[in-house]
Amino acid sequence: MILDTDSTKPIYVQIAEWLEAEILNGNLQADQKVFSQYQLADMYNINPATAAKGLNLLAEENTLYKKRGLGMFVSKDAKEIILQKRKNQTLKGLVREVVMESRRLSVSESELIDMVKAELREGEDQT
């Protein structure tokens, strides 16, 4: 992953999202130790406090858990927590934006649904 320092998204959020992606992709498994704040800081040339903030964000969401003196580990429910969060926050937000834009452009409901179906089919063809 490459951090986007020009993004409006804070670096610690980018770190947290990268770790979430690693969990979703199966690169980090339940009860597996994740990178320490110092390893992340070294990997991305960032302040260890920034890396710690990203780790703590995931710990607050119960995606990671702390073992005193040992570091942070992936929780057994991490994948489900991430999926639910992304469905309930990210995906719903994107849908809301698409619906609002379709209203501004006077796109009918059936037209919008057809567009979504076409995009889904196109995605299936690429896999």
Rank of each mutant, 00 (worst) to 15 (best):
M1W: 12
M1C: 11
I2V: 11
I2K: 13
I2Y: 09
L3H: 09
D4Q: 07
D4I: 06
D4E: 11
T5G: 07
D6K: 03
P10C: 07
P10D: 07
P10S: 09
I11C: 10
I11M: 09
I11L: 15
V13H: 13
Q14E: 12
Q14A: 08
Q14M: 10
A16N: 06
A16P: 06
A16K: 03
E17G: 07
W18P: 02
W18H: 13
W18Q: 10
L19W: 07
A21C: 09
E22T: 05
I23Y: 05
I23R: 01
L24T: 05
G26E: 05
G26N: 07
N27E: 13
Q29F: 01
K33P: 02
K33E: 09
F35M: 14
S36Y: 05
Q37F: 01
Y38C: 04
Y38T: 13
Y38N: 12
Q39W: 06
Q39Y: 08
L40D: 03
D42E: 15
Y44T: 08
Y44H: 14
I46E: 07
N47L: 05
N47F: 04
N47R: 10
A49L: 00
T50V: 14
A52C: 02
A52R: 04
K53V: 03
K53E: 12
G54M: 03
L55E: 00
L55A: 03
N56Q: 07
N56F: 02
L57W: 07
L57P: 03
L58P: 01
A59N: 03
E61M: 11
E61A: 12
E61H: 08
N62K: 10
N62W: 00
T63L: 02
T63S: 03
L64G: 02
L64Y: 01
Y65K: 02
K66I: 00
R68Q: 01
R68K: 03
R68I: 01
L70P: 01
L70R: 08
L70N: 00
M72D: 01
M72S: 04
M72I: 00
F73T: 02
F73L: 02
F73D: 02
F73E: 02
F73G: 01
K76N: 10
K76A: 11
A78W: 01
A78Q: 04
A78G: 06
K79Q: 12
E80S: 13
I81R: 09
I81H: 06
I81A: 06
I82S: 06
Q84P: 06
K85M: 09
K87A: 13
N88V: 04
N88H: 15
Q89R: 15
T90L: 15
L94P: 06
V95A: 15
V95L: 15
R96A: 14
E97V: 11
E97D: 15
V99Y: 12
M100I: 10
E101V: 09
E101G: 01
S102N: 07
R103Q: 12
R103W: 08
R104P: 00
R104K: 09
L105G: 00
S106T: 10
S106A: 12
S108M: 11
S108H: 10
S108G: 13
S108N: 11
E109P: 01
S110F: 12
E111L: 09
L112H: 08
L112R: 08
I113A: 14
D114P: 04
D114T: 10
M115A: 15
A118G: 07
L120I: 15
R121H: 12
G123M: 10
E124L: 14
E124K: 15
E124A: 11
D125L: 13
T127N: 14
T127K: 14
